[in-house]
């Protein structure tokens, strides 16, 4: 039995169909890379797996370790071992990173963590993502730079030790050194043979640092190609234009709202 099994998953946002029948299986120890042009459903898939209420599952099945994931609440999914590192992490004013993480750890365990163990855990995680320890006394993501927010997501992942991490563009907004730090933290979790991840990114650089075991391309809400690292190299070199010729799939460009005119602009 696969750890995560997604069958024919169809998802809507409002009236708009985003996912059109995703099928995917993930086992322990695997890292799956998801690539797609903007607006084709990568982030949607991760958000739906975590249970974001903004998305409506029209049909399909998702089993996590044999349990119907779609029937679980968001926190039950987290307690079952899922973790979503978000592309745009939320700010929680007035709540320190430290208090937040302590609540999160205690929510997942039967006995509250001892203060000594908690501080040691935080120290180690802060070192791993190269953030100063006093950062944990600041309110969650408030006043954080883009890079600090991303590293804070990885810090939380290291502390909470999920069995399936969903990493949504964790490299966006990071400089070259920070990407290496984040990748090294993810690779540290990979030392656990039970750890698996779905990794979304637009850039080959991240996948060079966190080598995926499987690679998938999503177009128009469907996985149209599966492969290995060579798929990433091909996209990095040629973009997505070859998809139509090779797979006969038209890439629907994301429709952006049209700006007719600027108003309130002083010239």
């Amino acid at each position: 039995m696969a750890k995560l099994s997604i069958k024919d998953l169809h998802v809507l946002v409002g009236n708009k169909k985003i996912l059109n029948g995703i099928n995917l299986e993930i086992n322990d120890g695997e890292v799956h890379a998801l690539l797609a042009p903007n607006g084709h459903g990568k982030s949607t898939l991760l958000a739906v797996l975590m249970g974001n209420p903004n998305y409506i599952v029209e049909k399909g099945e998702v089993l996590f370790n044999g349990v119907d994931l779609l029937k679980l609440s968001v926190d039950e999914r987290a307690k079952a071992g899922l973790f979503l590192a978000m592309q745009y992490p939320m700010t929680i004013p007035g709540v320190s990173v430290s208090d937040f993480l302590k609540s999160a750890i205690n929510a997942k365990s039967e006995k509250p963590i001892s203060l000594y163990k908690f501080i040691k855990t935080l120290e180690e995680a802060c070192q791993d993502v190269n953030l100063p320890l006093d950062m944990v006394h600041r309110p969650v993501n408030e006043g954080f730079s883009g890079g600090e927010k991303k590293r804070n997501e990885i810090l939380q992942m290291l502390v909470l030790k999920p069995s399936l991490a969903l990493l949504d563009e964790i490299d966006s907004g990071l400089d070259v050194d920070a990407i290496k730090i984040v990748a090294s933290a993810v690779n540290k979790l990979r030392e656990n043979p039970l750890f698996s991840a779905i990794l979304v990114s637009h850039y080959a650089r991240l996948f060079q640092l966190i080598t995926p075991t499987h690679v998938h391309i999503i177009i128009n809400g469907e996985i149209i190609a599966n492969g290995d690292f060579s798929l990433i190299e091909k996209i990095d070199k040629n973009g997505y234009d070859w998809i139509k010729a090779e797979y006969g799939v038209d890439i629907n460009k994301k429709v952006l709202p049209v700006s007719l005119e600027n108003c309130g602009v002083k010239r």
Partner: peptide, 14 residues
Amino acid sequence: QIFYLQSRGLSKEE
């Protein structure tokens, strides 16, 4: 914000 906190394991009420 509620989704974010829940995604770390806190119940909706927490």
